[in-house]
């Protein structure tokens, strides 16, 4: 399964990079969303994939019984998802504002600081 996930992550990175190389600023934002998904998934896979073993302690016990999925990676990804969303919200409003000034969805027209 990890092999398959490696290719999936690679595919997502490729899609993200392709979109980030476009001139349209909207596509850049779409690329960013894909990129953050790809990065999160990479981290998640790297921590190891376990089916049906959530990091929970059974009631009454002190430690989980048997092996559980890596909780640290999950905590990190959780933080990353939320921060990614914050950044995205900011970026979306920013490009909207930029569009109002430049009147085009084209980054080549945004490369001067004078507009």
């Amino acid at each position: 399964m990890e092999t398959l996930m490696a290719f999936t992550v690679g595919g997502l990175f490729a899609a993200a990079i392709y979109m980030m190389l476009r001139r349209s600023i909207v596509k850049l934002v779409i690329g960013l969303v894909l990129l953050s998904n790809a990065a999160n998934l990479l981290l998640f896979t790297q921590a190891g994939l376990l089916r049906g073993a959530p990091p929970l302690v059974p009631e009454g016990a002190m430690q989980p019984a048997g092996a559980v999925a890596d909780p640290l990676a999950q905590a990190l990804i959780l933080t990353a998802i939320v921060i990614g969303f914050g950044v995205l919200a900011f970026a979306v409003v920013l490009i909207h504002r930029a569009y109002e000034v430049v009147k085009a969805d084209d980054m080549d027209q945004m490369k001067d600081t004078d507009t």
């Binding site: 092999t3 490696a6 690679g10 595919g11 490729a14 993200a16 990079i17 392709y18």
Partner: peptide
Amino acid sequence: IALAVGAMMAVLKL
């Protein structure tokens, strides 16, 4: 180039 980056990430992961 995008595919090259994707391939690099996959290989790195593996």
